[in-house]
Amino acid sequence: MTTLSIQTVATEDVIEMCSVRVGKTLYGVPVTRILEILGAHATQPVPLAPSYIGGLAHYRGEVLTTVSLRRLLGMPPLDTAEDILVFEGVDGYFGLLVDEVGEVMTVLPADFEGNPSTLDDRRKALFAGTYKLQNALLVMLDPERLDPVHLTETAQA
């Protein structure tokens, strides 16, 4: 990981974010929303599935449907196994495939800003906003927007 300054503000409104990397961008997911992180987990492709489906993963006796952030963003697939973040969705658990899971960092609500207007529509729909870190930007991801059920609905609309 690049040097990321961890904000050490001892107030109650700091938000703990798990940082993940896809391509060169740093994304953050609220730690409280993550059920589990599966490191370098193998996935099985699903033929005929919507393009954003990353495949199936075996998770605690269940078949986990995963969403690939890379594919959602229209990026070329990665050769190595990706890390999976497990979330609870509308229709049971689902996984989010990311290049790499980083560390847990704290951010301040004051540093939050909405999506810049110059961002393309697809990304605007997926990103929840941005936290300004000292020397980087952390794109906030909202698991609800990444839920496969939600993605199917928006794809059809």
Partner: peptide, 23 residues
């Protein structure tokens, strides 16, 4: 999951003896 059920050709998934997943 419901998203994959919509494909309509698979009735489920399973984990094989070799650890591989199969539709």
């Amino acid at each position: 999951s419901s998203v994959l059920k919509q494909i309509g050709l698979f009735s489920g998934a399973t984990v094989l003896g070799n650890g591989e997943m199969a539709l």
